[in-house]
Amino acid sequence: MTTLSYDNGLVMDTTARIIEKHDLTKITKLFVVHAPLVARNAAPGQFVILRVTETGERIPISLTDFDRDAGTITIVVQEVGRTSALVNALDLGDDFLDFVGPLGDPVPLPEDGHAVLIGGGFGTGALFPLARELRKRGVRVSSIIGARTRSLVILSQLLSKESDELHVCTDDGSAGYHGFVTGRLEELLDAGAGFTHCFAVGPMPMMRAVATTTEKRGLPTMVSLDPLMVDGTGMCGGCRVSVGGESLFACVDGPFFDAHQVDFDIADDRLQIYKEQEKVACERAGLGR
């Protein structure tokens, strides 16, 4: 990590130190990271790439929040494999080995209308900066967030602060609407909610279901794709996704794409490339998956 000081008092500091850590679920943690250089130009819809150990992978993580003045970035990390487990084992005061960003294009947001934000699982974390910016612009915000069960619902309080209405859904009915987020979305649409834009972040099957629903209803929708990535700067093409028949790179052309143009089959499939290796890595790390 490097710190350069400038005559006019500016500092270029690439250190990224954890200043807050919260458990959202057993396997989902929220980190507030003091990373002033990354926060400086952060915008809604962007992400960071981080690394924890010298032998470690680079993994992309969406921004859950940023504060340019305080120089902080908030991220939510769910343990899904070897590297996310290493991240979640970090503690207050620890530094990330590498923490680079902000990456990706900021999501294009409307200036008016009524946006519905849909979050599934830990994807909910990525919605908050969108909600805040939309409200700032005077756009009405309805949020629908879903999880398997009550204990896995995350960030409902945070998101409710920047939502005109918040709908919680659980697969088992233990909280809020009993069913998938798309079920609740259909209900609201049927009731004449008057949504003009939709943004969805979550597991691939959820985003695909939202895309199918909103396409039928003619509701413009953007989804945030989270493919495998190496450099995050457009160099490797590993994160390519097929959008409208064209190969685009999620790291520089996305991560938000027109949901009705995305080929979800390919996107889903390409997430499985290293399934075998991930098993090996997890077993080796004693993660017992």
Partner: peptide, 13 residues
Amino acid sequence: EFVRDVIIGKTVT
């Protein structure tokens, strides 16, 4: 001075 993890055009323009 070598500074890693800075993407000119993103982190700083």
